[in-house]
Amino acid sequence: MLNNQTVKGQRMTRTQADVPAAAEEYWQAKQVTACTGIPEGTLRYWAHRGDMGPASFKLGRRRVWKKSSVLAWLAAQEAATTTPGGIA
Rank of each mutant, 00 (worst) to 15 (best):
M52I: 02
N4E: 14
L74W: 06
T42L: 12
E24D: 14
N4R: 13
P54M: 03
K58Q: 08
Y45Q: 14
R61F: 08
Q10S: 15
G41K: 15
Q77A: 00
Q77K: 08
T82L: 15
W73M: 00
A55Y: 05
K8G: 09
G53A: 05
Q31P: 09
A47L: 06
M1W: 08
G53T: 04
L74F: 01
N3A: 13
Y45A: 07
A34H: 14
R14S: 03
A23T: 01
A75W: 02
W27Q: 10
E40C: 14
E25D: 07
V32Q: 08
P39E: 11
F57E: 11
G86I: 03
A88D: 06
G50A: 07
T42K: 13
F57G: 05
S69A: 15
Q16L: 11
T6I: 15
K67C: 11
A76I: 11
A17I: 01
T42A: 12
A47S: 15
F57H: 07
G60M: 05
L59Q: 12
M1H: 01
T82N: 03
I38G: 04
K30W: 09
V32S: 10
E78S: 04
V32C: 05
Q28T: 11
G86C: 06
A88H: 14
Y26R: 01
R61W: 04
Q16W: 06
R49Y: 06
G60V: 01
P20D: 01
R11K: 08
Y45R: 13
